[in-house]
Nucleic acid binder design. Structure first.
Lengths: 188, 188
DNA sequence: GACAATGTAAACCGATCTGTTTACTTGTGG
DNA sequence: CCACAAGTAAACAGATCGGTTTACATTGTC
């Protein structure tokens, strides 16, 4: 049978660490803080994750899966038109930010661990490249002439909006981004 | 006489902390690490800056001044045409990133201290808003119809390129950004 | 009911953190 | 020559860090 049953202890730990790191930062949040009032003992944590860095990598992997589940799949489901799907990505990201005004967790980790822990830093780079690649696929499906370049432009808007929105604590920047998307797609 | 003489001890400390925090992160870099091999004693540091957070705020203020000195002023000096000045901003930011592939220090600090230290977090927001305001001034000077909106779009590209460039360790993303700038300006 | 597996709670370890204090050195001005 | 301001170097203090260990509780199973 598939492993679709109740959440594993491992998944519980990841879920707990997820928000603790997201809200508190990685270096600033200690292991004790991560597991406080969670009913999970430090011993169990270190049984599944030999080091804090291992836990962080697991959290970032979960974050990647969540990005597919809650961002890309819903966006693709909203329409069959690739241009509409692109706009849906900005829409859904804005909705996510309206609920919880946070940037990209993987890039946050990358910023903290660049030059210090290659595995974690690579997750930040991967996140940036991954979103770019999905935009490229969509632009190609839309039959744009310079699909790659347009897609990379969209990617910069997307990541810029996530960062500026977090800094200014205002998801409204995605409205600005979406107007730019219309222009860039029309010009391509 | 103006205070243009030799660097103050205070400025020395800030200069030392500047790169230590930029390269190592704020929470991850301890005071001892900051001042190691600098010939500056911890006692002197705490004489001028009563806490680490005070030092960080001073570093970020210096960062703001540096942004004016090494980014905005040179960009404005390159041309009198506001559209050329906008492109010069992207050009110079790319040159800075080619020498040292780092993102925005103030937003890095903002990410680490949002919800933890309002003074520092505000510096991140201020940085984001400040750049946006300068773009607005330039777009208005260029006589664009929807100056504000276009400026905010440029701002997202600018900040997105700084972030993605840092993540991917590739200043080439600014070439992508500049092509988008041309399109957005032409459409406005 | 014995037993092994899995878990919690909490004491513990050495290192490191922010911040303070003590002791010494080095000009510099009257 | 002495007083004083400003500095370095380093020991120190209490808290917290990542990580380990000890002791105990809860399971399901043969």
């Amino acid at each position: 049978m598939a492993d679709t049953a109740a959440p594993t202890k491992k998944q519980e730990i990841i879920a707990q660490a997820y928000d603790a790191f997201y809200d508190g930062g990685f270096h600033a949040t200690g292991i004790d803080t991560v597991m406080a009032n969670s009913g999970i003992s430090k011993r169990t944590l270190y049984k599944y994750f030999p080091s804090k860095e291992d836990l962080i990598e697991a959290v970032l992997e979960q974050y990647g899966e969540d990005t597919d589940t809650f961002l890309f799949k819903p966006a693709f489901a909203r329409s069959d038109d690739p241009c509409e799907q692109i706009l849906a990505l900005f829409d859904i990201r804005q909705e996510m930010m309206s609920k919880n005004c946070r940037g990209c967790l993987a890039m946050k980790a990358g910023q903290e661990y660049i030059g210090k822990h290659d595995g974690i830093a690579a997750r930040g780079k991967d996140a940036s490249v991954y979103v770019e690649r999905r935009f490229i696929e969509l632009c190609e499906k839309a039959g744009l002439k310079n699909a790659t370049d347009t897609a990379r432009q969209l990617n910069l808007l997307f990541q810029g909006a996530a960062l500026a929105g977090q800094m200014q604590q205002d998801p409204g920047v995605f409205d600005v981004a979406k107007r730019a998307v219309h222009i860039l797609l029309a010009a391509a």
